[in-house]
Amino acid sequence: MNDQYSLYIDYRPQKEWSKAPMMLEMSFGAIGGGLFLVSALLGLNTGIILGFLLLVVGKGVFLLADLGKPERFLKVLAKPFKSWISFGAWVFLLFILFGFFYCLPLLTGSGPGSGFLKIFTIILALILITYDGFFLAASKGIEAWNSGLLPILYGISGLTAGTGIGMAMAANEQAQLLQQINAVLLIVLAFLVFSYVNFLRKSTLGAREAAKLLLEDLKGPFWGGLVGAGILLPLLLVGLAALGLTAGSSALMLLAAALEICGVFFLRFVILRAGVYSPVI
């Protein structure tokens, strides 16, 4: 039967948001936002600038690339109190503005902005790393996404990558602290991934179908990419270093950070690909 007609009688994965620009837009948002947040809180100046650029340029470029009419992007700001996407666009715009002024002193060799500017920019970054999860959760058509776990999962995933990159960049004392935070975040992330899959398996028929898809058709990216490469392997590397059992060399931490970045991408890849429509009839 024609694919377009099978929509009504079979479960069918969504295809509109399963292409590269959407996944990259979400991934850059999470990685950049996480790095910015962690760096702003711990005073890692290079991380602040890198996080800001990754978030603004990476997310911004792929966000535009994902639109059917990118030249009309300003219209996305029309409904900030009704649409999550519109709300997110406003937050993104404010982050660009306030983040720029927060980072500006760094270019002249002094420290980043402080006080209200710092707090407000951090709050905006926190919203940006979680809001992808919010707008997915608001999509009625796809039951697997209708979960409050998604924003938390997305947020923790972004923070994990942020601390991961931070520990690879930081000096000794801060690196040790970041390794410990990173190890805890990886454990929380593993727990959240487990909880989300459990939610899918015990929820509606559409969500159960998504769990099946995740654990069967997408088992490679899920087990290999997300769980193995994105969580367990970096947890092993970082955990041993955090416990002082290995030297925690910068090369190993760099490897852990790279793996965590892959994990961010695979998390979004499997969640978007496992989004299935339930049959209408």
Binding site: L7, Y8, Q14, E16, W17, D66, L67, G68, K69, P70, R72, F73, K75, V76, A78, S83, I85, F135, A138, S139, K140, G141, I142, G275, Y277, S278, V280
Partner: peptide
């Protein structure tokens, strides 16, 4: 004239009533 082609409506519609012209 207002549609930006974000396709959020296609995802949200549980009846598969919408399509995107790529």
């Amino acid at each position: 004239e207002k549609c930006i082609g974000c396709r959020a409506c296609i995802i949200a519609c549980p009846y598969g009533a919408r399509y995107f012209r790529g």
